[in-house]
Design a protein around this nucleic acid. Structure first.
Length: 549
DNA sequence: AAAAAAT
């Protein structure tokens, strides 16, 4: 409903019904025209930007005048800089007092909060500002110190912010500028009561900058309550992802191991074009399982989801951004807002249950006008979600290599299994899998395959799937085998990652690890795979104001 | 059928 609005291509602020002359004049608009201070301007120039995006052009002048802003924009539109830059300019006057931050930015996730901090550091490099990042999952000590010192900029997730306040370490009545970012997502996450509480702690004389990608009724209500005569700036991404992102559906059997195999084959087939990829799963356990499976198969993968320890989260993300990891297996924590320039591929290991998540996920590639590719692995049970996605984006997504009817034909036995077994005991499914095995394997080896394939089902009992454990596992293993990303594990420092020769891999080992290894006992296979291959990569500088809208 | 966030 109202959420769908964003997906409809909308005329941007830059090209309204103006004469062509005016349009040219508008095209030539630069950051220097917006009224930003010289310090800010020089940092922006150093970062390599001259031309503001529509949301920046629309919001910055008003924000500088102290007006409230209602910004309706998705991430990827340059939204962050549209509040960071004017805030920096306005912060040049005045000083922070202990425990009384001058500005507050609320973000729904820790990663987004950290990302905003990066922006303040980058564009505030000519300022001497104290920036405090208050997020959960890390110790209070350092955060306390920064608050005590007096923060000019406070960036927080709601829970930790309130926690600090209850501990009496934080006074919000000195806040001059309040930013509420990704408000609709805060709504989804049930943060609205917290947001209301926080808003009520801040004097109404403040300036409020409010951003949301969509405007559901609850959000509209919130803006009516907390914004004063806001200037409304509304933009959308050009053609909402469709144009520069190649989208494909990939048929697969529905079992986890089918999907994992489909994914591996797909990754290998895309290897030449694939610079790096985010692989989305619907659930955290799937992230952990797929992550470990990919490592086992020598893929240079990291994982990211909300149950992971914060250090690991940060490290994984940083490593992925820096090109030290080629693959990032992630939950939807990474679907929205994260700005990782130059992700060449997005794989949906699961079809997202909510169609709009699809748009957010594939939007992690094809950023800043680049091209990108997205593949969505689909099995038969996914058709209704695919229908919903296609309805939402208004086009049919092409099948990569034949649609699901071909799956039935070629993998019939396997796919029949769940159906026949629906009312029947679980065993039925197993049996059918075995039957398939028989046709492919020597009997002697069958039990090995079985135990391996049973692992996903039995994983909950047999293997710890808690993310922390998984990550620790990984850490352990990597350390054991002269790991690539030493800084990634707490265990021990290991040698600097070798600049990898096998980046453009026609990797022979890869071939070896699918078929032949499959025919060996699982344990042995795992050991064989215990050498992680280092991939080199080159990744352009992190963070940019995404240019084109 | 999920994920996110305070401990």
């Amino acid at each position: 409903m109202p959420r769908l609005l964003t997906l409809r291509p909308r005329t941007s602020q830059r090209q309204p019904n103006l004469s062509s002359d005016t349009q040219i004049a508008q095209e030539a608009l630069t950051f220097a025209d917006l009224g930003l201070s010289p310090k800010v301007l020089s940092a922006v120039t150093d970062a390599g930007y001259t031309e503001p995006t529509p949301i920046q052009a629309g919001a910055i002048p008003h924000a500088l005048l102290g007006k409230d802003i209602l910004g309706i924009a998705q991430t990827g539109t340059g939204k962050t800089a549209s509040f960071v830059l004017p805030m920096l300019t306005r912060l040049e006057k005045g000083r922070a007092r202990a425990r009384m931050p001058r500005t507050l930015i609320l973000e729904p996730t820790r990663e987004l909060a950290a990302q905003v901090e990066e922006n303040f550091i980058r564009y505030g490099k000519n300022h001497k500002l104290n920036i405090a990042l208050l997020i959960g999952g890390v110790s209070f000590d350092e955060q306390d110190k920064k608050l005590e010192r007096g923060a000019d900029v406070l960036i927080a997730t709601p829970g930790r912010l309130l926690d600090h306040r209850e501990r009496g370490k934080l006074l919000l009545n000195g806040v001059e500028i309040l930013v509420i970012d990704e408000a609709d997502r805060m709504l989804d996450m049930g943060f609205i009561p917290d947001i209301e509480r926080i808003c009520e702690m801040i004097p109404f004389t403040r300036q409020t900058l409010f951003f949301s990608a969509t405007m559901p009724p609850e959000i509209t209500k919130l803006t009516e309550k907390f914004l004063h005569a806001p200037v409304r700036v509304e933009v959308s991404k050009a053609a909402s992802a469709a144009t520069n992102i190649v989208q494909r559906l990939v048929k697969s059997g529905s079992k986890p191991w089918d999907k994992r195999e489909t994914l591996r084959n797909l990754i290998k087939a895309e290897d030449a074009e694939l610079k790096n990829a985010i692989i989305f799963c619907n659930r955290k356990v799937e992230v952990s399982e797929l992550f470990r499976s990919l490592l086992k198969y020598d893929f240079d993968a990291g994982a990211l989801h909300g149950d992971m320890d914060q250090r690991a989260r940060m490290q994984m993300l940083a490593n992925f951004r820096d090109g030290k990891l080629r693959y990032l297996v992630a939950s939807d924590v990474a679907a929205r807002g994260l700005d990782i320039p130059d992700v060449s591929h997005v794989f949906n290991y699961d079809v997202p249950i909510h169609a709009e998540d699809y748009v957010h996920r594939i939007g992690r590639t094809g950023r800043a006008g680049r091209s990108g590719k997205s593949f969505t692995i689909a099995s038969k049970s996914d058709t209704k979600y695919i229908d919903a996605i296609e309805r939402l984006i208004g086009t049919k997504i092409e099948w990569h290599d034949g649609d699901l009817s071909t799956v039935v034909a070629s993998e019939g036995a396997e796919d029949e299994a769940p159906r026949r077994g629906r009312g029947a005991p679980r065993r039925a499914g197993r049996k059918d899998d075995d039957r398939k095995d028989r046709s492919e394997r020597k009997p002697r080896e069958r039990h090995a395959r079985q135990s391996e394939d049973a692992a996903p089902d039995g994983a909950r009992e047999e293997q710890p799937v808690a993310a922390e454990t998984a990550v620790a596992d990984i850490g352990e293993r990597r350390a054991r085998k002269e790991a690539i990303r030493s800084e990634n594990t707490e265990r021990q420092a290991s040698p600097e990652r070798k600049a990898s020769p096998n980046r453009s891999d026609q990797r022979a080992p890869e071939r070896g690890d699918t078929r032949p290894q499959r025919d060996r006992p699982a344990r042995q296979r795992q050991e064989d795979n215990d050498a992680t291959v280092g991939f080199g990569d080159d990744m352009p500088a992190f963070m940019r104001i995404v240019a084109k809208v």
